[in-house]
């Protein structure tokens, strides 16, 4: 019961944050260089009729806050305006680009969790052994390699050189083809994040393995599997889940560069194009979607923490 109440409270908090973000996003229009009308006109000829139409559509004659109110109410109804470049509704532009990005981010997260957490745990448990030292060395290289540079290297080696993977595009909408196409981008994006999560997990495991409860469990003959899963993994989970949530957010923003390198028609690429074309409504829409994602991921992380740790459920610190 307390948990439901807590999650409700957090949801209300989320809404407040999103309203603040929406205000900032709306202000982008006013802050962009040149007059608002010129920005919204884009490449259209500046005839009095068109200008009047735009002024009416965007309520430009109203005070700023009223304009914001109009924008917000239509945003809530799913209308974020129209793309200046194509004239399409911003929501449908984003909807056509977002899936690839989300798939890429999810693929990356899977790599990070499936590779990073076990490797980090193994390194932390066998602290100081050869495996740990090699992994620790590799993570430094991994963290140092920028995703886009790594992407170019991967294209050169696995795409051009070995010909194993396609070098651009997202492929057809078939799942297998999609996975095939997204592998190199996901690896490029995941490498640095895997390195981070390995270090996080390793540190957390090392800390947990030195706790008295592990020693106590071993002295009373609790089985090795139980100690590793019930004790080490569960107690490591809290800091690792927190880190993974942050990494997912980093992954979403990291897609901007990687999508450009691999010519993926995703939200990242859309963002780059929209900024280049001063397509403010699309930029607004994307910024708003990213904000929603970030807030949602944070809520998920909090919910996961509640599931993992009974202490957080009781609201007792320490």
């Amino acid at each position: 019961m307390a948990i439901v109440l807590f999650l409700l409270k957090r949801l209300v908090g989320m809404v407040v944050i999103l309203i603040i973000v929406s205000f900032l996003v709306f202000s982008l229009l006013a802050l962009s260089p040149g007059s608002v009308v010129a920005t919204l006109l884009g490449t259209q000829p500046s005839t009095p009729q068109v200008v009047a139409a735009i002024k009416a559509q965007y309520h430009l004659n109203d005070p700023f806050l009223v304009q914001y109110w109009h924008w917000l109410t239509s945003a809530v109804h799913g209308d974020l305006g129209r793309s200046i470049q194509s004239g399409e509704a911003v929501t449908s532009v984003i909807a056509s680009h977002l899936p690839v990005t989300l798939e890429l981010a999810a693929y990356t997260l899977v790599l990070v969790v499936v590779v990073g957490i076990p490797v980090g745990m193994a390194a932390g448990i066998g602290r100081g052994r050869l495996f740990d030292r090699s992994v620790s060395g590799a993570t430094i290289v991994g963290m140092g390699a920028p995703g886009f540079a790594l992407g170019i290297l991967l294209i050169y080696v696995f795409g051009v050189g070995l010909g194993w993977f396609p070098v651009y595009g997202a492929g057809s909408s078939q799942a297998i083809d999609r996975v095939y196409h997204l592998t190199l981008p996901a690896v490029a994006l995941a490498t640095g994040l895997v390195a981070l999560i390995v270090r996080q997990t390793r540190a957390a495991v090392m800390d947990v393995m030195e706790q008295d409860y592990i020693t106590f469990a071993r002295t009373r003959g609790v089985g090795r599997a139980r100690v590793m899963l019930g004790y080490a993994l569960r107690n490591t989970a809290l800091p690792v889940v927190t880190a993974a949530g942050l990494l997912l957010i980093v992954a979403i923003s990291g897609t901007v560069l990687v999508e450009t390198v691999f010519s993926l028609p995703g939200a990242g690429q859309l963002m780059v194009q929209a900024i280049e074309a001063k397509n403010v409504p699309v930029v607004q829409g994307l910024a708003f979607f990213v904000a929603v994602l970030v807030v949602a991921v944070n809520l998920l992380v909090d919910a996961a923490a509640l599931m993992i740790d009974p202490r957080t459920r009781a609201g007792v610190r320490g």
Partner: peptide
Amino acid sequence: QDPFTMLNPL
């Protein structure tokens, strides 16, 4: 020694 660290908190 320490009852506060000897049991698995979860």
